[in-house]
Design a protein around this nucleic acid. Structure first.
Lengths: 141, 141
DNA sequence: CGCGTATTTTAGAATGATTCTAAATAGAAT
DNA sequence: ATTCTATTTAGAATCATTCTAAAATACGCG
């Protein structure tokens, strides 16, 4: 198995704290969305989030889900990513530098910790690299 | 400078030949589109293609551009890619394995040849890698 | 050349994700 | 409580892309 990322489960109180610290009001909608994104989900799309949250919070507006993920992104609590294999943006609670593995059989995305990949770039001198994004596609044997 | 990819300019006749070889009829629309994608463009979006072709071939249908890039993709003459920084698919005439550099100042995308990057993966035994996609973001000093 | 058929082009409608709008609601500070 | 600002919401708008069904075109064959 690909190593699990270090994402401790947050209590509702801790989530509330994170939101406040980010200057976001800890509304019921946001707490529920965070419960999913920060604790349970694995690289969910907005559609995924809406579906899960709808069960706990029937009738939540799709716009609220979009508003919230944007706010969380701005606050640095999640990272928005888009990969080739899907036309939807997915949200990643892991905001540390890391890479991704797409299991082509299951369609699931897994984190690859930075230390599992060594990269050696042989680029022109004048290039200053700010970020490297890597998607590894493959299968389990 | 990032090394140029080996893309010789193709004559109209050569383009015609490529299309025929791919089982595609070399229509005027397709020849014009290929003239741009295969000879002139650098990672163009459909919008880019449409704009350029429109000058040579006024009134070409947007649907034709989509149809053509799809056909070229199926034929293996171009590769469709989508990166985080844009919500549009771009087309790459370089179908060899390679990576990309995004110049954050100009917004332009450059090919990085495979041999300019050495990757060492330390992944679980049971993972069989089929493809690695890399986007390097940075600036020129 | 001219005919028949499969391919291609086309305009416009449809789709799907996302963003915008403007009004209603809820939090927080006084 | 009152007020001010942030948040939520439904629905409309937008944007890239795909679909549809009809018209135009390319190509093989006589």
């Amino acid at each position: 198995m690909t190593q699990q990322s270090p994402h401790p489960t947050l209590t509702p109180e801790e989530i509330r704290g994170e939101l406040k610290q980010a200057g976001m009001r800890p509304t019921a909608q946001r707490l529920t969305i965070c419960q999913y994104i920060l604790n349970q989900a694995n690289h969910p799309s907005v559609e995924d989030i809406k579906a899960w949250v709808d069960a706990k919070f029937p009738g939540i507006s799709l716009a609220t889900v979009y508003n919230t993920v944007h706010a969380l992104e701005t606050a640095g609590l999640v990272q928005a990513i888009r990969f080739d294999h899907s036309d939807k943006v997915i949200y990643d609670r892991n905001t540390e530098p890391h890479f991704h593995f797409l299991d082509e059989d299951s369609g699931t995305l897994h984190d690859i910790q930075s230390d599992q990949v060594q990269i050696n770039l042989n680029l022109p001198e004048d290039i200053r690299v700010n970020d490297i994004s890597i998607l590894i596609r493959g299968k389990r044997q």
